[in-house]
Design a protein around this nucleic acid. Structure first.
Lengths: 153, 153
DNA sequence: ACGGGGTGCGTGATACGTCAACATCCCCGT
DNA sequence: ACGGGGATGTTGACGTATCACGCACCCCGT
């Protein structure tokens, strides 16, 4: 047996559990809103957002996986489903014949452009509006710090 | 067409996207640690933690769903899997014959007691250690505020 | 040129989450 | 007492996430 660990203080526990619960709540709210209003899941939205942000509305699958920080196979499965719904298409890559591009279809672009204003609204309604500018800045810094310290390895 | 929405500022976007990414990273790290070290998923851990905190190591299914804020059917499915692995058992409820208790088995109790110190360690290593006490307090307050404002409806 | 190791991506099995539908049972008004 | 509405919990179908694996292909040393 090792020595007793230093258990979490009440505040530490509030921060940890609160983070988890806040996230779940927000994802649930925002996700339902997107789904019901536009037939897009949160994942769909993120994928389309990254793609439309890229030049030519296209990205290599692996690059997309990188910016999303998704496992390649998760992305692959998801793209298959999105392609089935006509939101994106795969294209062969001339440079590297193993590779593949994902391209937003007109329908995909239309979908995210329709959904974007509502998404921003949701983020404000469910999240930002309840916080002071100072809290928002703090949270951004907290997130950046934690991410930076966990990204690698 | 409605007027353009007020798009997110850079900081607001950092806070929102950062929150999502920070959460995913932490859940991934902590989840793997639990899974690899003790064969428990994060969900298993939470369920066992709530149950062992309750008197008699047992709770009504619905009460458990309440404290976890899980859908009843999610919980039901999860309990079925946990029962299959011998971590919990269901028991009939004498008072209300519709109802059911979930009870931690000795194996379940052993599992979470073995895992708990490591869990605390993980929360510190991946999360708390990178933040100042002030940031931790701030985050706890932020989470509480957001949760409180979204809990209902 | 060729052969082996690494890379880019897809697939199938399995675990998990959500929804809708259902069976059972409690409670309360009449 | 009985009958309907609400509550408790389970189930099946389906979408999604992860893992292990496989295939095609590139690159580089020989």
């Amino acid at each position: 047996m090792s020595a007793d660990p230093r258990w979490l203080t009440a505040t530490e526990e509030r921060a940890w559990r609160g983070l988890l619960r806040m996230h779940d709540l927000l994802v649930d709210r925002a996700g339902r809103s997107m789904q019901e209003g536009f037939g897009l899941s949160a994942a769909d939205y993120t994928v389309l957002a990254e793609l439309t942000r890229a030049p030519g509305d296209r990205l290599r699958v692996q690059e997309l996986a990188g910016v999303l920080d998704w496992e390649k196979s998760r992305l692959s499965h998801h793209l298959t489903r999105m392609a089935k719904r006509g939101l994106v298409v795969r294209e062969e890559c001339a440079d590297d014949r193993r590779g593949a591009f994902v391209v937003v279809t007109p329908a995909g672009r239309e979908a995210i452009e329709a959904a974007a204003p509502r998404h921003v609204e949701d983020v404000r309604r469910y999240f930002l509006n309840h916080l002071t500018p100072g809290q928002i800045t703090l949270l951004a810094e907290i997130a950046d710090t934690v991410i930076e310290n966990n990204k690698h390895r």
